[in-house]
Design a binder for these strands. Structure first.
Lengths: 334, 334
DNA sequence: AACATAGTTGACAGCGCTGTCAAATCGTAT
DNA sequence: ATACGATTTGACAGCGCTGTCAACTATGTT
C-alpha cells in the first residue's frame, strides 16, 4: 500500500506535479480550471502532503519549539495558550516539549528541537546546562527565555524578577506587623529558589528569623502539598503568624487545612500565595497573591519571535521586565 | 551559512556518510576506531541530524499524534504525562495538538498530524466530523479514542461510560434522600452532555424534576465558574438540596461560595464533583466525587499503540471500559 | 500581421538522509 | 600460504517535495 504522492494527484488531474504543489500552496497563481481539476483529484485520492518532504525541499519547517517544565501547573497552560494563539495564526506549528524540571531533560529537548530544525526556541527559565547554552547560542535562531530575568540572556529574555516578587510578598506580611513569617514550598526549582531569596532578603532587612516550611522530598506545587505541609507544621506545634506560599495552590491547601484545624484565616494566621491564579479571587477567604503575567509573557514571546523571523536583522540580548503586582485580599487583611 | 550535514562530518572524519549515519543510529555495527573518529567530528562540528531528511528517507517518523481539547484541565496533563512516559521511553516523539473543544479544529489537527505522517493517533473523545472519521479510518494507522465509550469506534477505544458515571453520582444523591438535586456545569461538551444524560436518567427513574444550572455562555470548568453559577442560583433564591457538578473545580467553587454565604456543606447542601482531582480529598469539607482513570487511560492507550506498531497485525474496533468509582466523602455525608 | 507583455505551466535538480546490496577487510582454519 | 565465512565499510539510488528558471499561452498594441 503505497502512500499517495503529489505525482499520483498530478497524473489523475493530468497536470505536472509542480502545478499540484502550487494549487496547494499558492492557489492564486493557478488558473481556476486547473485548480478545480487538481482539487478534485486531491479529494478523490485523499491526498495529504508529506510535511517531511516539504521541509526538506524548502528548508523551512514553520515550526517553533517550546520548552516548559510541566503541564500540571495551569500557568504554563495559559502561557502556551497565548503562544499558540499568535504562532498558529501566523502559520507555524508549535512543538511543545516538557523538561520535567530537569536540566538534563531540557538539554535533550533542545537537541530534539534543533534536530527538527525549528525556526525558533522559546524556553521557560534561564538556568540551563553549559551544553544547552552552547547549543542555543550556536544555533543561529531566535531564542526567548521566559518567566525569569537572566543576568546573561542568550538572546531575548522576557520575564520578571522572581526575587523581587518574593521580597514584595514578604514585606507586605512584615508591614502587617507579623514577625513569625514562614516561607512554604513543595520544591525549590529555580524560580521558587529566587522567591525564597527574596523572602530571606526581606526577613534579613527586618531583622527577623527565617522560618522555612519546605517539603523533604520535592513535590510539585499542589493543593495537597500545601495541606500536608501545613498539617505537619501544625502538628509540630510551631504555627507561624503568616505564611508566604510559592504558589496559590499551596496557599489554598494551607487555608483548607487551617479550616479543618479550627485556625481562622486571616484572624489567626495570614496567608499570601503566588501567581494570582483564577481561583484566588473567589476563594473563601479570598487569597492575597502576587499577580504574574503568563498570558502576556507568551504573547510577547511569540510576537517577538515572529518579528525576528520576518526581519532577518539579528538583534541580540534584549531583556523585557513584565513586572508583577501585589494583590491584597482577605487572607492577609487586618 | 550552510547547516552542517552528514557529508561534512564524513569528510572531517575521513569516512563515508553512511558510516556516520550508522555511528549515530546503530553504533554497535561500527568498529570502535571509526566510531571515535566520527563522534569527535560530530562534536567538533556541533552536528545535529536533520530529522525531516531522516523521516523522508526511512519513511518512519517515530512520531505519535495526540489530540486533546484543552491543557487547562489537569486531567489532560495527567493523561499526557502517562502517554509521554510510555511513548518517549520507546523512542517516539509525541506531538500534542489542542482542539479547543472544536470539531473543526480537531479536523484540522488530524490533517496536520497525517501530514506529519505520524504513526498513530490518540484522540480524546469519540465525536468527530464525518471527514475526521473518514480520514482516520482511511489512514491505515492505529487510532485510539479515549475518555468515552463510542457506539462505533474507529479502531481502538479506551474509556468509560460518562453517562453511567453521571447516573451513579445522581443516584447517590437520591439515595441520600434529596429531591431537589441540581446538575451544574459551565459548558456542555460531549462528555458533560453524557453526564447530564445520566443525571436525567436517574432523576427520571426516581420521578424527580430536573434542575439545571448551566452557564449561559459556555465556560471551561473552573473554580470561578462554580462559584459564579452557585452565586447566581442563590441570588435567584432557588438553592437546591444537593448539586452534582461535572467537575471538581466547579464543586470547589460552589463550596467556597456556600461558605461565603453562610450555607453549610453538607448540613445545608450536599455537593458531589467529578474526576476526583487531587485536592478533593483534602478540601474542607472533603469532596465526594467520581474517580476517573486518566493516568491508566493514557498508559494503556500508549501501550496498545506500541503493540499495534510492533505487531503489524491489524486488529480493529476493540473497546476497553476502564470504569470509574464513586468516592464518598464529607461533602455528601449525612 | 507582428510583436511586446503579463500570466500560466512545466523541466530539472537537489534538499539530507537511509535501505539495499556489493565490496573490502579481518580472523581463523586448513 | 590459501581459502573461507563473518564482519565492517561503501556506492548507489531514491524518499516526496520545492526553488529556479525556462517555455508556453493568451491578450492587447502598433
Amino acid at each position: 500500500m503505497r502512500r499517495i504522492t503529489l505525482d499520483d494527484v498530478a497524473n489523475l488531474a493530468g497536470v505536472s506535479p509542480i502545478t499540484v504543489s502550487r494549487v496547494l500552496r499558492k492557489p492564486d497563481a493557478v488558473s481556476p480550471g486547473l485548480r478545480l481539476r487538481v482539487d478534485a483529484a486531491v479529494k478523490e485520492l485523499g491526498y495529504v502532503p508529506n510535511i517531511a518532504a516539504s521541509r526538506l525541499a524548502s528548508s523551512r519547517t514553520h515550526a517553533i519549539g517550546v520548552i516548559v517544565p510541566t503541564l500540571y501547573n495551569v500557568i504554563f497552560a495559559e502561557y502556551l495558550f497565548a503562544l499558540h494563539e499568535v504562532l498558529v495564526a501566523a502559520g507555524f506549528q508549535v512543538i511543545v516539549v516538557n523538561s520535567r524540571y530537569s536540566e538534563i531533560e531540557e538539554e535533550n529537548a533542545i537537541k530534539a528541537l534543533l534536530g527538527q530544525r525549528v525556526e525558533a526556541i522559546i524556553i521557560a527559565g534561564t538556568h540551563h546546562t553549559p551544553l544547552s547554552r552552547q547549543l542555543l547560542a550556536q544555533a543561529r535562531l531566535p531564542v526567548v527565555e521566559t518567566f525569569e530575568l537572566s543576568p546573561n540572556p542568550i538572546d531575548l529574555n522576557i520575564g520578571m524578577s522572581q526575587e523581587h516578587a518574593g521580597q514584595t510578598a514578604t514585606q507586605h506580611l512584615i508591614e502587617r506587623g507579623f514577625r513569625r513569617i514562614a516561607f512554604l514550598t513543595g520544591n525549590l526549582d529555580h524560580r521558587a529558589q529566587s522567591r525564597f531569596d527574596g523572602y530571606r532578603l526581606a526577613m534579613q532587612e527586618a531583622e527577623l528569623p527565617n522560618l522555612e516550611i519546605i517539603a523533604e522530598k520535592p513535590r510539585h506545587s499542589s493543593v495537597v502539598v500545601g495541606s500536608d505541609l501545613f498539617a505537619m507544621t501544625h502538628e509540630r506545634g510551631d504555627v507561624p503568624e503568616a505564611i508566604f506560599c510559592t504558589d496559590d495552590n499551596l496557599a489554598l491547601g494551607a487555608m483548607q487545612e487551617c479550616r479543618k484545624r479550627g485556625i481562622r484565616v486571616p484572624d489567626d494566621i495570614s496567608i499570601i500565595g503566588f501567581h494570582d491564579l483564577e481561583f484566588a479571587a473567589c476563594a473563601a477567604p479570598s487569597l492575597s497573591s502576587i499577580a504574574t503575567r503568563r498570558f502576556e509573557t507568551g504573547k510577547l514571546a511569540a510576537e517577538r519571535v515572529l518579528a525576528a523571523l520576518n526581519s532577518s536583522v539579528v538583534s541580540r540580548a534584549e531583556q523585557i521586565d513584565l513586572g508583577f503586582a501585589l494583590i491584597l485580599r482577605e487572607s492577609t487583611a487586618i
